[in-house]
């Protein structure tokens, strides 16, 4: 009986040792993952939107940043481009966003009614539009062409019909079009 007892406690020790080893490996895996995310976030500046900005959706069409005449793409003095857009049931304004390739672009967007989302297919541009808040996303396209931009959040019965478009054109062509001033888009083209 006593021999069996010793055997039992010895096997228990082996079991505990193996188990501890596995637990240590598991903890290391997790620490490395969190560490990599932190490193990429800080060092490569790949992060979700850092700041919270609010806006009154019942007044956006009257004044301020998201009045209709201010929607679309604008070439800033720095050479960067800012795109302003809104989502509403069931379309984006502008419905076709025009941007240059190889240029840092800031997308600023909000919703006029319910929750929507902007997703540009074939890229990792992906943000929610929550009424009352402004979404900001930095992006840069390396390839010219047309991209589909569906609404990615359920926004009631017409959701399946809410598709926009992004048209990426050559940098110099965009600069030429921007010479006249105003806000650019590719609606109707």
């Amino acid at each position: 009986m006593s021999a069996q007892d010793t055997h039992g406690s010895a096997s228990a020790e082996v079991a505990a040792r193996v188990e501890r080893r596995w637990a240590t490996i598991a903890v290391i895996i997790i620490v490395v993952m969190a560490g990599l995310a932190a490193f990429a976030g800080i060092h490569r500046a790949t992060m979700p939107q850092p700041r919270v900005e609010t806006i009154d959706p019942s007044r956006i069409h009257l004044s301020g940043e998201f009045v209709e005449s201010n929607l679309g793409s604008v070439l800033e003095a720095s050479g960067a481009v800012t795109v302003r857009a809104i989502g509403q049931q069931y379309s984006f304004t502008p419905a076709c966003i025009l941007v240059p390739a190889d240029t840092p672009i800031t997308l600023r967007a909000t919703s006029a009614d319910v929750v929507h989302g902007i997703l540009i297919q074939g890229t990792n541009v992906n943000t929610m539009l929550v009424p009352g808040y402004i979404s900001e996303q930095l992006m840069r396209f390396t390839r010219t062409g047309d991209y589909l931009m569906p609404c990615q959040e359920f926004c009631s019965f017409g959701h399946e019909g809410m598709w926009g478009k992004v048209k990426v054109i050559d940098k110099t062509e965009f600069a030429n079009r921007a010479k006249g001033g105003g806000r650019l888009s590719c609606v109707g083209q």
């Binding site: 997790i30 993952m33 969190a34 995310a37 932190a38 976030g41 992060m47 979700p48 939107q49 850092p50 700041r51 919270v52 900005e53 909000t110 989302g117 992906n126 943000t127 929610m128 539009l129 929550v130 009352g132 808040y133 402004i134 979404s135 900001e136």
Partner: peptide
Amino acid sequence: TFADPQVGAGFKFIHSAFTA
């Protein structure tokens, strides 16, 4: 809510780490 505009990046990171 990583893609949401109503939460700042700090709490998003904390929640990401806890999810790990």
